[in-house]
Nucleic acid binder design. Structure first.
Length: 591
RNA sequence: GGCCCCGUAGUUCAAGGGAUAGAAUAGAAGUUUCCUAAACUUUAGAUCCAGGUUCGAGUCCUGGCGGGGCUACCA
């Protein structure tokens, strides 16, 4: 990279001019702001301590040195404390020509030797997926792809929370009110059906609580004593005791849920390599807790509940087994983590994509694992992301404001259909291809929207407006790709680049932007942050559109220049495609 | 109460301690005998407040004010 080369030359210049040795890595080189002349800029302020001269003089002397000692530099200028360098066109053209050799420019195919497990989605089996899951799933899926593009091996996984009091609630409600209803008989997805009974439980439960309060109990007591809740708790105990009737009901209803989830995942275009079920791993968790009791890592209270003391980590004591012996979320999380490292001993890291409301939970989990002596606990990390809020505030199932994932996906595809039919560039497509295109655009827009924001931050989602198709959006990027495909379809075969071709700033700037792509992929991987890729892609696309709009490509009379422009277009399309792929977004050849 | 995160144009988002804080959208004004106008061009508009560190602060520190999260024998 030219930046590394320049840093070396600047470092040498500092030695030559001022007798100082400066660490190459500490030299700040950035792209020149567009209002100034130049391609790359050296920030000289940090060098003043060593040069013992003013910023203008230092920059001037350094600029002269760089000009003389670096063939790639054509000229320089100094503005305030900034040394702006103009790099030769032939260097940029050479770079363009080199990078074109590879279709997967920016994607690192060299094996790093590292294997990461990325967990995402991880739904409960008592209710359907919603908007919050979509942010989670798109984020985890994209991060997995980004890690792979950085040369790592990746296992996509989830933990399915298929046991616990919540699923017992759905089961109980179905037994009581369901009259044998099935997804087939009801004509709805299995996850939706089970979710319906989860809600039915809640309704019945509330009624009972009110009744009890009417009978004179205080609220807290009533919430504990409601018969339907006690029955659900009883059911959980029976389940843990492997009661055959409960087990088969549980299997049946979970089967419905998985059927429903799989339909949703298929629409999203995400897959998993390995699934973990809480019903399998919680036993291992329990076993570990029992052992921890013996070794003195944990202690038992008088009421028989089991706790871990974490005061040495400045954390509160954490419950691991309830007084009735049943396990909690933390118990199974311990088991699952251990199971994963047993299954994949070569793991270099375990990444949990889970909302930031659980930051404390993971702090505790990692502390417990570390305390148990698992060194790999230090490699576990919580990829925490902010909640998705609605204009009306938080999504609340109680208030019925939860945005259902299936409904949302359907509605964005519907929007895409309407928008696309309005424009009408679809003459040659079959009905099937059209449907695929609507899905590509609608889901692409949705993914882009949810990945655009830095994961760490909360974000706002306005379902009324649904997904905008103008501006900084997925379809905007897709449109640019489609337009380039159309352009290339009309062009002759591309020729090798003549590095002496006279190019203008618009071509040069585009090359510079394209060359940033591998760096951006690396950065996105380091930060586990797809939004840096989104922002980059948007920047690139805007620049290309401006370029496309102002120059003629096919009609350019100078064959060499025309060839460069076509190659640039091809290259831009390729970067768009690769970047979007890392975001889980497809690009259409026409739209 | 304690711990953590966040306050940037009307709105939704950017900005590795570096130049005059960028976009998008909504607003105003333009561009099609021409490669897809889902595009492009122009225009107006913002760092919560008060201190401090620094050659330089949206960014780091302290104190306010405002918002969110966690602090469950829920998940």
């Amino acid at each position: 990279m030219i930046g590394d080369l320049l840093a070396k030359v600047v470092s040498a210049g500092m030695t030559d001019l001022y007798g100082a040795s400066i660490d190459v890595a500490s030299i700040q080189i950035q792209s020149t702001k567009k209002e100034f002349e130049g391609d790359l800029t050296v920030v000289v302020f940090p060098l003043l301590k060593v040069s013992k001269k003013g910023p203008a003089d230092t920059a001037e002397e350094l600029g002269q040195f760089v000009l003389e000692n670096c063939a790639e530099v054509d000229s320089f200028n100094v503005v305030k404390g900034f040394l702006n360098l103009v790099i030769s066109n032939s260097h940029w053209l050479q770079a363009l020509s080199d990078q074109l050799k590879s279709n997967d420019f920016g994607i690192n195919r060299e094996e790093s030797g590292k294997l990461y497990m990325v967990e995402y989605s991880s739904p409960n089996t008592n209710k359907p997926l919603h908007l919050g899951h979509l942010r989670n799933i798109f984020l985890g899926d994209s991060v997995a792809s980004i890690l792979r593009a950085n040369g790592h091996k990746v296992i996509r996984t989830q933990i399915i929370n298929d046991r616990g009091i919540h699923i017992c609630k759905s089961m109980l409600a179905w037994l009581r009110f369901g009259q044998g209803e099935t997804p087939e008989s009801a004509g709805i997805k299995g996850d939706k059906l089970v979710g319906k009974y989860y809600v039915a439980f809640d309704v019945a439960y509330k009624k009972e609580v009110e009744q009890l309060i009417g009978d004179g109990l205080d609220e807290e007591e009533a919430k504990k004593e409601a018969p339907i809740l006690k029955e659900a708790q009883e059911m959980l105990k029976k389940w843990e005791a492997k009661d055959p009737e409960i087990s088969s009901l549980w299997e049946k209803m979970n089967g419905w849920v998985y059927g429903g989830f799989n339909v949703s995942y298929k629409t999203m275009g995400v897959e998993f390599d390995k699934l973990y079920y809480e019903s399998d791993t919680y036993l291992l968790g329990k076993k570990v807790v029992e052992e921890g009791l013996k070794t003195g890592h944990y202690y038992r209270k008088e009421d028989q509940s089991v706790w871990v003391n974490l005061s040495d980590r400045k954390l509160d004591d954490k419950l691991l087994l309830r007084a009735d012996g049943t396990s909690v979320y933390m118990t199974q999380d311990i088991g699952t983590a251990i199971q994963r490292y047993q299954d994949f001993p070569g793991l270099s890291g375990l990444i949990y994509t889970v909302g930031n409301e659980q930051e404390h939970h993971f702090k505790v989990l990692f502390a417990i694992l570390e305390k148990l002596g698992y060194d790999w606990a230090q490699e576990c990390s919580h990829l925490s992301y902010g909640m998705v809020d609605l204009p009306t505030g938080k999504m609340k199932s109680r208030e019925g404001t939860v945005v259902d994932a299936d409904d949302l996906m359907q509605s964005v595809v519907e929007d895409a259909r309407n928008m696309t039919q309005e424009r009408g560039h679809l003459d040659k497509l079959s009905e099937e291809e059209k449907e695929r295109l609507y899905a590509t655009i609608g889901l692409g827009g949705l993914k882009y929207y949810l990945l655009r924001v830095d994961p760490k931050r909360g974000m706002m989602f306005n379902p009324e407006e649904s997904i905008d198709l103008n501006g900084n959006t997925g379809p905007f990027v897709q449109y640019t790709f489609a337009r380039i495909q159309s352009l290339l379809g009309k062009a002759d075969k591309l020729l090798p680049i003549d590095t002496k071709t006279g190019i203008a700033a618009s071509e040069k700037n585009l090359i510079i932007e394209l060359l940033k792509f591998p760096v951006v992929v690396g950065e996105a991987g380091k930060q586990l942050n797809p939004s840096v890729l989104v922002n980059y892609t948007y920047e690139l696309v805007k620049q290309f559109n401006s370029f496309y709009q102002t120059v003629n490509i096919l009609k350019e009379p100078d064959e060499q220049l025309k060839n460069v422009r076509l190659l640039l277009s091809d290259c831009t399309a390729n970067v768009i495609k690769n970047a979007m792929e890392l975001l889980g977004i497809q690009v259409p050849d026409q739209m």
